[in-house]
Design a protein around this nucleic acid. Structure first.
Lengths: 222, 222
DNA sequence: GCTCATTCTTAAGATTTACTTAAGACTGGC
DNA sequence: GCCAGTCTTAAGTAAATCTTAAGAATGAGC
């Protein structure tokens, strides 16, 4: 799990980085708001831990911009600004939790875990008809025969199966699988869908990945 | 949105009930832990607001049992137990947030909203009789059976259902669905209405899309 | 019940969108 | 820096949708 910590006081950020890394999180530190936002938008973090008062761009502005870009990763404020009004402002800006300094590191950890909880319970393998996708081992089987998929092919299939039964639009796919958060027109998705279908070797009438014209694709138990 | 409040002090529970109802939540109050758990398991609440100390069964036990049953609705503790250890215990038991008394009602409201945020945004669906139109997933169901509509069919049906109960003129439809903002005579709309009706497979007497001769069409609960 | 205007239905051509292939760009490991 | 594997772009082909138009059906008014 990747966590971005935005904190200008080096003492605190070191403390957080070390503590979180001991819990096996991968931590990136940004020392001002601009850097934090740039990182948050360019990489894909699983959680943002923001101080309110940051040089150049405040934490609350970072949070607002991040949400405005359509990203849904949890955001936690960790700040000395402790009034009710500030808490509310932080939550309204799109934060998922608001923790006041001084804080207990243990409590912070637990509150971070709360954010990941639903994601963790998530099954490590998915099924779709005869297709078995093992997220952990990064393997795909069809009727017990292994099919080798590349990284992107795997992510795309995973996304479709995770959302089986619901149509996934091209823009959603580009967002979630390619991490491109602006309008983007290209035939990439088509090429990968084609390649997945070929590798899975399904005949047209038994295709578990159906095209939804004008929208995107849908994975479905036939 | 249905909220279950488990609180034995009648002053607090009345205050919460009234305040939340003003915000248009539907509130059920349980005065002890056993009642709370029974209600939580038998009905489907969108959120649980638990006091820690409750007669018969503590809030934390209610939370554990609730989670054990596989339910995922958010649980918030609202309690006077304010140590770090208690907070952690509450969160570990499966709570999504832990608010310490005395609390600001405004902050409580905001923290409740945080829990609903993701759920609310994705609720872009309309209903018309047995027809369910999910804007986000771009899917249409009739009596739980999915019907595939093309792009234009979908937009047209969406427009009619969005305006159900009021007649939509041909020129309005051409404007809103086809984005043609000048006078335009053609049979396009008829063709699409026909195709939608056919796909929905409704008999004439149960047609939810009625023709208004000389004007246009109207979607109506029969 | 007849007439005329309006709407329904169908089918064929135009248009848009997706599929497939192949070539070039990129990337990580050696 | 090179190679092998992977990703992306682009262009031609295939397929589905959208539009138009024309004849059939329907309903309102006389």
């Amino acid at each position: 799990m990747n966590i971005l910590v935005a904190e200008d006081e080096i003492g605190i950020s070191n403390f957080l980085k070390q503590g979180l890394e001991e819990e096996n999180y991968i931590v990136t530190v940004a020392s001002d708001g601009e850097k934090a936002l740039r990182l948050a938008l360019s990489q894909s973090f699983d959680l943002l831990l923001l101080d309110w008062m940051l040089p150049k761009l405040s934490g609350i502005e970072v949070c607002r911009s991040f949400r405005k870009s359509g990203r849904t990763a949890p955001v936690l404020f960790l700040t000395a600004k402790d009034t009710v009004q500030e808490t509310i402002e932080g939550l309204k800006a799109g934060a998922n939790d608001y923790i006041k300094k001084p804080f207990s590191f243990e409590e912070l950890l637990e509150r971070i875990k709360v954010q990941f909880r639903s994601a963790v319970t998530e099954n490590a393998s998915y099924m779709l008809g005869p297709i078995l996708l093992d997220k952990e081992k990064h393997q795909v089987f069809i009727d017990d025969r292994e099919v080798y998929l590349t990284q992107k092919e795997f992510s795309l299939l995973e996304y479709l199966i995770k959302n089986k039964g619901t149509v996934c639009s091209r823009s959603q796919i580009i967002k979630e699988v390619w991490n491109i958060h602006f309008d983007y027109e290209s035939g990439v998705i088509d090429v990968f869908i084609n390649s997945i279908r070929k590798k899975l070797g399904l005949r047209k009438e038994e295709d578990y990945i159906k095209t939804v014209r004008g929208i995107g694709y849908i994975a479905n138990e036939i």
